[in-house]
């Protein structure tokens, strides 16, 4: 079957099977390999993309479900610029191996679009659908706080690490 949709602003049509998962449409058919696969039960969130502006798990959606939809992947989040969340992850060491990072960034960007002044607790629960095994989330939280401050026009808090 054919599926037509908009991905990162571009209209695309692609041949898929009924069973093709959205993440495989993106990765295999469209070559957008920034969206990752980490589990098979919809738990890890590495595959998070925006469908019609909302963060969802692309490994737990069929490609067929997004017919006519607008999909944004990490590659299209800021189109070569850095979204404040991406900047925050870089500035506050929000990633190590980087595998969970695209999904984490997409979830965080969705969260901050709704609320640019979340509490630490809201941030922590807001990324509960994204698992990271490297960072203990500490600097991911700081990265999102950095991004939120930037989006509000505030000065981000100083980093936690001690420079000697």
């Amino acid at each position: 079957m054919e599926v037509s949709l908009t991905v990162n602003g571009q209209a695309v049509t692609s041949e898929v099977e009924a069973r093709t998962l959205l993440v495989h449409l993106l990765r295999e058919n469209l070559g957008l390999t920034g969206t990752h696969v980490g589990c098979e039960t919809g738990y890890c969130g590495a595959c998070t993309v925006h469908v019609d502006g909302t963060p969802v798990k692309s490994c737990t959606m069929l490609a067929a479900q997004v017919e006519g939809a607008e999909v944004t992947t990490v590659e299209g989040l800021a189109n070569g610029e850095l979204h404040p969340v991406q900047e925050g992850f870089w500035e506050r060491h929000g990633l190590q191996c980087g595998y969970c990072t695209p999904g984490m960034i997409m979830t965080a960007a969705g969260m901050l679009a709704d609320n640019d002044n979340p509490s630490e607790d809201e941030i922590r629960h807001g990324i509960e659908g994204n698992l990271c095994r490297c960072t203990g989330y500490h600097n991911i939280v700081r990265a999102i706080e950095y991004a939120a401050a930037k989006m509000r026009g505030d000065e981000p808090a100083a980093p936690d690490w001690e420079v000697v």
């Binding site: 990765r27 390999t33 990490v74 989040l77 850095l82 992850f89 695209p102």
Partner: peptide, 14 residues
């Protein structure tokens, strides 16, 4: 980080 935060990292399956 610049590659990884923009989805341009290359892991084996990429």
């Amino acid at each position: 980080d610049p590659a990884l935060i923009q989805g341009h990292g290359r892991y084996v399956d990429d």
